[in-house]
Lab assay of single mutants.
Amino acid sequence: AVSDRLIGRKGVVMEAISPQNSGLVKVDGETWRATSGTVLDVGEEVSVKAIEGVKLVVEKLE
């Protein structure tokens, strides 16, 4: 699937994400809805860990 190529890629949070609410991330110039187990603020760099349906699962870049 086209989304599989995104796993491991870096992105930037465009709309804040929390465990309760999905947000938006931009990866390779495309905007995706994303979820995370932690709070991520706009502008934070993330990496794509998995894909669930049409949402990316991301975590903060260390």
Rank of each mutant, 00 (worst) to 15 (best):
E62P: 09
I17C: 04
S18W: 09
N21I: 14
E15T: 14
V57F: 11
G23P: 01
E15I: 14
K26A: 14
E44A: 12
L61G: 06
G43N: 11
W32E: 02
K55T: 14
P19I: 08
A34G: 04
K60H: 07
K55Q: 14
T35W: 08
R9K: 12
K49P: 01
V27G: 01
V25H: 00
T35F: 05
W32D: 01
K60P: 08
W32M: 05
A1F: 08
E15F: 11
K55P: 02
G53R: 04
S3Y: 06
A16H: 13
I17G: 02
T38A: 15
A50K: 10
S3C: 05
L24G: 04
E45I: 12
K55N: 13
G23W: 03
L6P: 04
R9H: 11
V42D: 04
S3I: 11
A50R: 12
E30I: 10
V39T: 14
G43K: 09
V48T: 02
R9Y: 09
S18K: 10
S47D: 05
G8L: 03
D41L: 13
L56W: 02
G11I: 01
I7N: 03
G11Y: 01
G23S: 01
E62H: 15
D41T: 15
S36L: 01
G11T: 02
S3G: 09
V54E: 09
T38I: 08
R33C: 05
G29W: 07
E15V: 12
E52S: 10
P19R: 05
E15Q: 14
E44L: 10
V54S: 12
R33T: 14
D28S: 08
D4V: 06
S47M: 15
V25T: 03
G8D: 04
V57C: 04
S18E: 09
V57K: 06
E44D: 12
V46A: 05
V2Q: 11
Q20L: 15
V48Y: 00
R33Y: 15
I51M: 07
V13W: 01
V42R: 14
I17H: 02
R5Q: 10
S18P: 04
N21T: 14
A1E: 13
V25P: 00
V27E: 00
S36H: 02
I7V: 15
S22F: 11
E45H: 14
T31W: 09
R5D: 12
S36E: 01
E45Q: 14
S22G: 10
S18I: 13
E62Q: 15
V27A: 03
G11M: 02
V46N: 00
V2R: 02
V2Y: 03
R33I: 10
E45G: 11
A1I: 13
V12E: 07
E30S: 07
E15N: 09
P19Y: 07
G8P: 02
S18C: 05
E30P: 04
S47P: 01
L40P: 01
I51R: 07
D28C: 05
R5C: 06
V13A: 03
L6V: 07
N21D: 07
G8C: 04
G53M: 04
K55L: 14
E52A: 09
M14G: 04
L61Y: 13
E44W: 12
T35Q: 08
V48D: 00
E44S: 10
P19E: 06
K49L: 13
S18M: 11
V42E: 07
K26V: 10
K60T: 06
A16W: 08
K60I: 07
V25M: 02
L40K: 02
A1L: 07
R9V: 08
V58N: 00
A16M: 15
V58W: 00
K60V: 06
V2I: 15
V39G: 08
R5A: 11
D4T: 07
E52T: 12
V42A: 08
A1H: 10
V58F: 01
V54R: 10
V13H: 00
E30T: 09
G23Q: 01
V48L: 02
S36T: 03
G29M: 15
L40W: 03
L6I: 07
V48P: 01
V57A: 05
L6E: 02
K55V: 14
M14F: 08
A16K: 14
V39M: 10
A1Q: 12
V25Q: 00
G37S: 09
L40C: 05
L61N: 11
D28G: 08
T31V: 10
S22M: 15
E44Y: 06
E62F: 15
L6Y: 05
G53P: 03
T31R: 06
V48A: 02
K49N: 06
I51D: 02
V54K: 14
S36A: 13
S36P: 02
R5I: 07
V57R: 09
L24Y: 10
A16I: 12
W32V: 03
D4N: 08
K55W: 10
G11P: 01
G11A: 06
L40G: 01
T31H: 11
E59W: 07
R9I: 04
D4A: 05
E59T: 09
R5W: 14
V12T: 09
V42W: 05
E62C: 05
P19G: 08
A50S: 10
W32Q: 03
L61W: 11
G8I: 02
G23V: 02
E62I: 09
V25A: 10
L56P: 01
V39R: 14
D28T: 06
R9P: 02
E52Y: 11
S36D: 01
K10F: 07
G43M: 08
G23D: 00
L56T: 02
T31Q: 11
V2E: 15
A1V: 15
K55M: 11
V46D: 00
W32G: 01
I51K: 05
V25S: 01
D28Y: 07
S47H: 10
L61Q: 09
V42S: 09
E52P: 02
V46M: 03
K55A: 10
D4C: 04
I7A: 03
G29I: 06
D41C: 06
S18F: 11
I51L: 12
G8N: 07
A34M: 02
V54P: 11
A34S: 04
R5Y: 13
G8S: 04
V39Y: 15
S3K: 07
A16R: 14
G53D: 06
I7P: 03
E30G: 12
V57D: 03
V12Q: 08
R5V: 08
A16P: 08
Q20I: 15
V42K: 10
W32T: 02
K60E: 04
E59H: 07
M14C: 05
L61A: 09
E15C: 05
E59I: 15
E44P: 00
V13C: 04
D28L: 07
V46G: 02
R9G: 05
E45N: 12
K10Y: 13
